[in-house]
Design a protein around this nucleic acid. Structure first.
Lengths: 219, 219
DNA sequence: AAAAAGACAATCATATCTGTCTTTTTCTGG
DNA sequence: CCAGAAAAAGACAGATATGATTGTCTTTTT
């Protein structure tokens, strides 16, 4: 996609006259089309990778003409930004949903996050993260979101297992361990050719490690 | 770079008549130029990423004209292939060199591989691995090499610490654990925004884990 | 010294992506 | 029912990468 090659200072579409009248009606369908375009963008990120996610490809994936697409997102950059926001919200939403479940085993953290990482959203996110390494503009968008995610990840875990508050060192280690192993496996599974048979043993080992690091072994 | 868009069946350069006479001549300078181009390619992979590693960029990085470059590597694909082979050999060489050291602590494996992963070669390799996910041709080149590396990695470790031969389950786990954690950290350090302060504790924890998995705790 | 081969440089033609602009179609509300 | 705005489609020009071609100079080889 190669974020923004030109820096045009176009005024954002004025739309809806000056009188911000009724909340809206028919134009709510526009939101649906925007959502469709965003989903298509994510699909393209997974199928073609960031570099080959071009505006024609996204339009085709969404079943729309490129012109129509540019009507909803004036820029290819705007599309990527919207997709990133959507991806980020989805990750946080899925996490909060999982945290609301009644039962809370210490090792649930592992299983829940691992399931997360199996979804296309993570592949798309990693694709963006890799691209951001050599794309400053992308990096500036992504970096804060990554930090926020890790922070909320830890906050969620801390809230879920308050008994860990006494040993922050162990907690920090358990978090980094979980994130590194699980994300590392997810990436290796896609790119590095990690043997899928090795996944289960690793998950169990990680669970054992976390239990060992926990102040009170819950099981 | 977008590996090979056209499939030309060009005959390989005949060169040096039929009589394979003198083994060398002054045209060994060509090899030097080829090496320079390959190094430039790796540098570009690190600086610009795979997608933005274009033939003009490589030529510029090497201080050569694009035409001259195309003389040594008829294809952009050929250049990438050569760079991959070089990267692979370098990884294996560095590993064998480390294995030849006199002292062999169990945890040396961790330190050695971690040092490996800090070098640009790994960044370049990961850049290629990610691109290969959505590029079949690249994947076909890379996959066998990745498998070979992991196999030799394990073989090296097995040879270095023969006492592990008795418990293959633990050995397998230790290997996967090491590779996943170290590679995961290296990637997160570049893309995911892993806090560098977390690296040291993780290394020590991993070393502890490996020692615990070893049949005889060497220390 | 002549001829052949290699190294290097410059240019051309094609394809694709990008952003912008113009035109057509489809509503929606007075 | 019809003017007007939003949505959709299409057309266009600028930029860039790629492979191929051509030409020049240097270094071997004969």
């Amino acid at each position: 996609m190669a974020l923004s090659r030109t820096r045009v200072v176009r005024t954002a579409r004025p739309s809806r006259t000056t009188a911000e009248k009724g909340p809206t009606l028919q134009a709510a369908k526009a939101a649906q089309t925007r959502a469709r375009l965003i989903e298509a963008t994510v699909r393209c990120l997974v199928k073609y990778g960031y570099a080959n996610t071009t505006t024609p490809k996204v339009a085709e994936e969404a079943g729309l003409s490129r012109g129509a697409m540019m009507h909803h997102f004036e820029n290819g950059t705007a599309l990527i930004k919207a997709a990133i926001a959507e991806l980020h919200d989805k990750r946080l939403r899925a996490f909060r949903r999982a945290a609301d479940r009644p039962e809370h085993e210490v090792t649930d953290l592992v299983e829940t996050y691992w399931r997360q990482l199996q979804k296309p959203a993570f592949i798309a996110f990693h694709e963006l993260a890799v691209a951001a390494r050599t794309d400053d503009e992308l990096a500036q968008i992504l970096k804060p979101l990554q930090d926020e995610f890790r922070q909320k990840f830890n906050a969620q875990a801390e809230q879920l297992f308050p008994e860990w508050g006494d040993s922050p060192v162990n907690f920090s280690l358990a978090m980094t361990l979980s994130q590194t192993i699980l994300e590392g496996m997810a990436i290796s599974l896609q790119t590095g050719g990690l043997d899928p048979a090795r996944v289960e043993p690793m998950l169990r080992h990680l669970e054992g490690q976390i239990s060992a690091l926990a102040p009170r072994t819950t099981r």
